[in-house]
């Protein structure tokens, strides 16, 4: 069990996170918030790359900073900006990371072969990564995070650069992995989280706003999401009055999915809200904030 107790993080006078309390058991957790909301700060603290200014993070009751290598032994981490040496092949790179993870050559070799197959890179295992596409690089990153068969798998924006087929494969992989481990998936892409997350955590104003199942979260705005058809010349007025969630061109009119907190009007069809609706509703006031974490 991974616990976050009253954790705050300050960068000088800027407070990136305030009094965070979280509890993670085995399963997939989606950490959902716009860029700059503090997701990466929280992820980095869980990966021991940053340390709480206040509070503590514990694994099975023990402070993860004090656990040091014992904690990192349990950890698989894919950073948001996954770096690699361009002249390395996936095989060489994974061998290096396996050594850093304390794996012997005898343990590492079959595991690397298994993972390269899993992420469909076995045919290019010996090729230099400088010629790889973004999706291929990301798959190497996923493989390195899983090298030590981690009990805690932390992935920051893992699907960036993956094509739709790869995304589906990746989601299925995470679901199978989550049976006996904690998987924390940080993203601002709702569709990455909705199908697989047992619980979704949403951060707003440096605090945890919600931590709940997708169904329960969506019920928060049940009865407030509608669809209707609008003529093109009325669309601008409509958008200024209601929160538009999505729009689709249908024949000569626009089909608008929108949110309204009041009585329904004739011609409006109530629909079941989804996580994306809640996301847009929750973060409707703020455009994407600038990442205020100071450069180190």
């Amino acid at each position: 069990m991974l616990n976050v107790h009253q954790v705050s993080k300050n960068f000088g006078s800027f407070q990136a996170l305030r009094s965070i309390d979280l509890e993670f058991a085995n399963g997939v957790y989606g950490l959902l918030a716009p860029n700059g909301a503090g997701k990466t700060t929280l992820i980095k603290m869980l990966a021991t790359l940053l340390f709480p200014s206040e509070g503590e993070i514990t694994y099975n009751g023990e402070n993860i900073t004090a656990m040091d290598a014992r904690y990192r032994n349990l950890l698989g981490y894919l950073p948001q900006q996954f770096g690699y040496y361009k002249n390395d092949s996936p095989q060489k790179y994974l061998t290096y990371i396996a050594a850093l993870k304390g794996m012997s050559q005898a343990e590492a070799s079959p595991r690397i072969a298994e993972l390269l197959k899993l992420v469909a890179l076995e045919d290019v295992a010996g090729k230099k990564m400088k010629k790889f596409s973004g999706g291929m690089i990301q798959r190497v990153g996923i493989a390195q995070a899983m090298l030590n068969d981690p009990k805690i798998l932390i992935l920051d924006e893992p699907t960036a650069g993956l094509d739709p087929k790869e995304r589906v494969r990746f989601r299925n992989l995470l679901t199978s992995l989550a049976r006996d481990r904690i998987v924390i998936l940080s993203t601002h892409i709702v569709s990455d989280v909705e199908p697989i997350a047992g619980e979704v955590i949403m951060i707003k104003d440096q605090r945890i706003l919600y931590k709940d199942t997708v169904d329960h979260l969506c019920r928060r705005i049940e009865g407030r999401v509608f669809e209707t058809y609008v003529e093109h010349d009325e669309a601008e007025t409509f958008r200024s009055r209601y929160l538009s969630l999505s729009e689709k061109q249908e024949s000569s009119r626009l089909k608008i999915r929108f949110l309204h907190e009041g009585e329904a009007m004739p011609g409006w069809t109530p629909v079941m809200p989804n996580l994306e609706d809640l996301f847009i509703y929750t973060y409707r006031d703020g455009q994407e904030q600038e990442d205020k974490e100071p450069a180190k």
Partner: peptide, 18 residues
Amino acid sequence: QDPIHEVEMSCTYSGQQI
């Protein structure tokens, strides 16, 4: 200029120990 600093720091042997 190390691009894999973050990955190294999360490994059993951290970047600083290395």
